[in-house]
């Protein structure tokens, strides 16, 4: 009696239990024919498809294509956003010139630009990368800009009293002070980039995760669709882990709230 009581107690606090039960119910539904495969493939089927695609190299190839789109798009977007934020953050004239344009840009939903980008860039890689780049500019810009403006003026004054030049003040005080904000912006940009990737890849692609999904839709392969959804989720998690790792390295000077 005591043992069964203990087991039920530990099951009561297990957070993995409900997802597992959900998967089991899903599997049972598929096996019994309650959920037809054309509606949603069984978890076991999804798993075996995932293995097949991994072994055949189909998954890696398409993932690589999508990955490159994100990396190139982000690199362009983050660089442009950071440069504009530096221009606007470090000089009054820069702010007057850049900030109104960025605020206008903010009001336009990036994905609404898709038709225009197709007209301009066709349906190759360019519009996909351009959309990702365009979407990831703003989070970096906004956060870095406010980070620069939020740098403690007393620290800046202290540095000035020791005769640091303008360039040295930027290098030693302003940029490190704005780094936490930049990382927040980077995190937003990463998640926006993945979101835009999903939509951009559905534009007549011949490779990539979006292409896999589109193709699978035509053949009603719900198992492949679910595999791709899982990959998107993993991409999001990996992006978050990446920024966390960067933060832990770059912000070691901050006393961690958790440790105390």
């Amino acid at each position: 009696m005591a043992i069964s009581h203990r087991i039920s107690a530990s099951l009561g606090s297990a957070r993995w239990l409900s997802p597992l039960l959900f998967l089991l119910a899903w599997e049972a539904g598929s096996r019994s024919g309650l959920i037809p495969e054309r509606t949603l493939a069984a978890p076991s089927k999804v798993l075996s498809t995932l293995l097949d695609m991994a072994v055949s190299g189909e998954l890696a190839d398409n993932l690589w294509v999508s990955f490159l789109r994100i990396v190139i798009g982000l690199a362009i977007g983050v660089t442009v956003g950071a440069v504009l934020a530096l221009v606007a953050g470090l000089s009054r004239q820069g702010e007057v010139a850049v900030d109104p344009l960025m605020q206008i840009k903010r009001t336009i939903p990036t994905l609404a630009l898709t038709p225009l980008f197709i007209v301009w860039f066709g349906i190759g890689e360019t519009p996909k990368i351009a959309l990702i780049a365009f979407a990831s500019i703003f989070p970096v810009y906004l956060n870095l800009y406010s980070g620069i403006r939020g740098v403690d003026l007393r620290l800046l004054e202290g540095a000035r009293s020791f005769g640091l030049s303008c360039a040295e003040q930027i290098l030693h005080v302003i940029l490190p002070g704005a780094l936490p904000s930049l990382l927040v912006g980077l995190r937003y940009s990463l998640s926006v980039a993945i979101l835009v990737l999903v939509v951009a890849e559905q534009i007549n692609a011949s490779a990539g995760l979006g292409y896999l999904i589109n193709n699978a839709r035509d053949f009603m392969r719900t198992d492949i669709i679910v595999v791709c959804l899982m990959i998107y989720a993993v991409l999001g998690l990996a992006a978050d882990a990446l920024v966390r790792a960067i933060e832990n390295r770059a912000l070691v000077w901050r006393p961690s709230i958790v440790a105390q």
């Binding site: 540095a159 030693h172 490190p176």
Partner: peptide
Amino acid sequence: RLLPWKKVWRNVALG
């Protein structure tokens, strides 16, 4: 007014 992102000796060596 020490720079929190620089170790103590680097703060002293600033400039």
